[in-house]
Amino acid sequence: MAFFLALLNGVIGSLSRLVNASLAVFAGSLRGSLINHIVGTVVAGGLLVVGVRTGVLQFGGLPWYYWIGGCMGVFVVAASNYAVPRIGAVLLGMLLLAAQLITSAGLDHFGLLGGSPIALSWTRIAGLALVLTGAAVTMTERRRRRE
Protein backbone atom coordinates (compact mmCIF):
# COMPACT_ATOMS: atom_id res chain seq x y z
CA MET A 1 0.00 0.00 0.00
CA ALA A 2 2.65 2.50 1.08
CA PHE A 3 4.69 1.24 -1.88
CA PHE A 4 2.02 2.34 -4.35
CA LEU A 5 1.44 5.61 -2.56
CA ALA A 6 5.16 6.37 -2.89
CA LEU A 7 5.02 5.60 -6.62
CA LEU A 8 1.92 7.77 -6.94
CA ASN A 9 3.84 10.57 -5.28
CA GLY A 10 6.54 10.34 -7.91
CA VAL A 11 3.92 10.74 -10.62
CA ILE A 12 2.29 13.70 -8.85
CA GLY A 13 5.80 15.09 -8.46
CA SER A 14 6.49 15.06 -12.18
CA LEU A 15 3.04 16.53 -12.86
CA SER A 16 3.70 19.35 -10.45
CA ARG A 17 7.15 19.87 -11.99
CA LEU A 18 5.48 20.33 -15.37
CA VAL A 19 3.04 22.89 -13.99
CA ASN A 20 5.84 24.60 -12.05
CA ALA A 21 8.04 24.79 -15.14
CA SER A 22 5.44 26.84 -16.98
CA LEU A 23 4.78 28.85 -13.82
CA ALA A 24 8.52 29.56 -13.53
CA VAL A 25 8.65 30.81 -17.12
CA PHE A 26 5.81 33.11 -16.20
CA ALA A 27 6.85 34.37 -12.79
CA GLY A 28 10.46 33.24 -12.19
CA SER A 29 11.11 30.07 -10.19
CA LEU A 30 11.47 31.64 -6.75
CA ARG A 31 8.32 33.68 -7.13
CA GLY A 32 6.72 30.59 -8.65
CA SER A 33 7.64 28.75 -5.47
CA LEU A 34 6.08 31.53 -3.40
CA ILE A 35 2.85 31.26 -5.42
CA ASN A 36 2.88 27.48 -4.98
CA HIS A 37 3.23 27.80 -1.23
CA ILE A 38 0.48 30.41 -1.02
CA VAL A 39 -1.92 28.23 -3.01
CA GLY A 40 -0.89 25.20 -0.95
CA THR A 41 -1.50 27.08 2.29
CA VAL A 42 -4.93 28.23 1.12
CA VAL A 43 -5.94 24.73 -0.08
CA ALA A 44 -4.73 22.89 3.03
CA GLY A 45 -6.10 25.65 5.28
CA GLY A 46 -9.42 25.51 3.43
CA LEU A 47 -9.68 21.76 3.95
CA LEU A 48 -8.99 22.23 7.66
CA VAL A 49 -11.56 25.03 7.90
CA VAL A 50 -14.32 22.90 6.35
CA GLY A 51 -13.57 20.27 9.00
CA VAL A 52 -11.24 17.74 7.35
CA ARG A 53 -9.04 16.34 10.11
CA THR A 54 -6.22 13.82 10.09
CA GLY A 55 -4.85 14.65 13.52
CA VAL A 56 -4.74 17.43 16.07
CA LEU A 57 -3.05 20.69 15.12
CA GLN A 58 -1.21 21.43 18.36
CA PHE A 59 1.90 23.40 19.04
CA GLY A 60 4.50 22.19 21.45
CA GLY A 61 5.71 18.67 22.06
CA LEU A 62 8.16 18.84 19.15
CA PRO A 63 11.49 20.71 19.00
CA TRP A 64 11.41 23.82 16.79
CA TYR A 65 13.34 22.32 13.87
CA TYR A 66 10.49 19.97 13.00
CA TRP A 67 8.52 23.03 11.93
CA ILE A 68 10.93 24.43 9.34
CA GLY A 69 10.62 21.79 6.58
CA GLY A 70 8.83 24.41 4.48
CA CYS A 71 11.89 26.69 4.48
CA MET A 72 14.04 23.89 3.13
CA GLY A 73 11.77 23.41 0.13
CA VAL A 74 12.18 27.09 -0.75
CA PHE A 75 15.96 26.84 -0.26
CA VAL A 76 16.08 23.91 -2.71
CA VAL A 77 14.38 26.04 -5.38
CA ALA A 78 16.74 28.96 -4.72
CA ALA A 79 19.84 26.73 -4.78
CA SER A 80 18.76 25.11 -8.06
CA ASN A 81 18.22 28.58 -9.51
CA TYR A 82 21.74 29.50 -8.55
CA ALA A 83 23.37 26.27 -9.72
CA VAL A 84 21.78 25.62 -13.14
CA PRO A 85 23.48 28.46 -15.05
CA ARG A 86 26.83 27.66 -13.40
CA ILE A 87 27.10 23.87 -13.55
CA GLY A 88 24.12 22.86 -15.74
CA ALA A 89 20.91 20.99 -14.99
CA VAL A 90 22.38 17.50 -15.37
CA LEU A 91 25.22 17.94 -12.89
CA LEU A 92 22.83 19.72 -10.50
CA GLY A 93 20.38 16.81 -10.80
CA MET A 94 23.05 14.20 -10.15
CA LEU A 95 24.56 16.01 -7.14
CA LEU A 96 21.08 16.63 -5.75
CA LEU A 97 20.06 13.01 -6.15
CA ALA A 98 23.33 11.62 -4.76
CA ALA A 99 23.14 13.88 -1.70
CA GLN A 100 19.47 12.95 -1.21
CA LEU A 101 20.09 9.22 -1.33
CA ILE A 102 23.18 9.28 0.91
CA THR A 103 21.48 11.50 3.50
CA SER A 104 18.29 9.46 3.47
CA ALA A 105 20.21 6.21 3.93
CA GLY A 106 22.00 7.78 6.91
CA LEU A 107 18.76 9.05 8.43
CA ASP A 108 17.18 5.60 8.03
CA HIS A 109 20.22 3.70 9.34
CA PHE A 110 20.44 5.63 12.58
CA GLY A 111 16.69 6.24 12.89
CA LEU A 112 17.34 9.97 13.21
CA LEU A 113 14.71 12.71 13.62
CA GLY A 114 11.83 10.53 14.72
CA GLY A 115 12.16 7.56 12.35
CA SER A 116 12.56 3.91 13.25
CA PRO A 117 16.00 2.59 12.21
CA ILE A 118 16.38 0.67 8.93
CA ALA A 119 19.85 -0.91 8.87
CA LEU A 120 22.10 -0.11 5.92
CA SER A 121 23.06 -3.45 4.32
CA TRP A 122 25.38 -4.07 1.35
CA THR A 123 22.31 -4.93 -0.73
CA ARG A 124 20.80 -1.59 0.15
CA ILE A 125 24.01 0.26 -0.75
CA ALA A 126 24.13 -1.60 -4.10
CA GLY A 127 20.49 -0.68 -4.72
CA LEU A 128 21.12 3.01 -4.04
CA ALA A 129 24.17 2.94 -6.34
CA LEU A 130 22.06 1.34 -9.09
CA VAL A 131 19.31 3.95 -8.75
CA LEU A 132 21.93 6.69 -9.07
CA THR A 133 23.62 4.99 -12.04
CA GLY A 134 20.31 4.43 -13.80
CA ALA A 135 19.32 8.05 -13.26
CA ALA A 136 22.70 9.16 -14.64
CA VAL A 137 22.27 6.99 -17.75
CA THR A 138 18.81 8.48 -18.29
CA MET A 139 19.65 12.09 -17.53
CA THR A 140 22.82 12.33 -19.62
CA GLU A 141 21.03 11.08 -22.71
CA ARG A 142 21.21 13.43 -25.67
CA ARG A 143 17.69 13.45 -27.01
CA ARG A 144 16.48 14.02 -30.49
CA ARG A 145 13.13 15.65 -30.91
CA ARG A 146 10.62 13.72 -32.94
CA GLU A 147 9.05 15.49 -35.88
Binding site: G69, A79, S104, G115
Partner: peptide
Protein backbone atom coordinates in the same frame (compact mmCIF):
# COMPACT_ATOMS: atom_id res chain seq x y z
CA UNK B 1 24.65 24.52 -3.16
CA UNK B 2 23.41 21.51 -5.15
CA UNK B 3 24.69 19.04 -2.56
CA UNK B 4 23.25 21.09 0.31
CA UNK B 5 19.92 21.18 -1.51
CA UNK B 6 19.97 17.37 -1.83
CA UNK B 7 20.75 16.95 1.87
CA UNK B 8 17.90 19.35 2.62
CA UNK B 9 15.44 17.34 0.51
CA UNK B 10 16.09 14.22 2.60
CA UNK B 11 16.04 16.16 5.89
CA UNK B 12 12.87 17.98 4.89
CA UNK B 13 11.02 14.76 4.09
CA UNK B 14 12.04 13.22 7.41
CA UNK B 15 11.15 16.34 9.43
CA UNK B 16 7.79 16.72 7.67
Amino acid sequence: ASITAGVFVALMIRLN
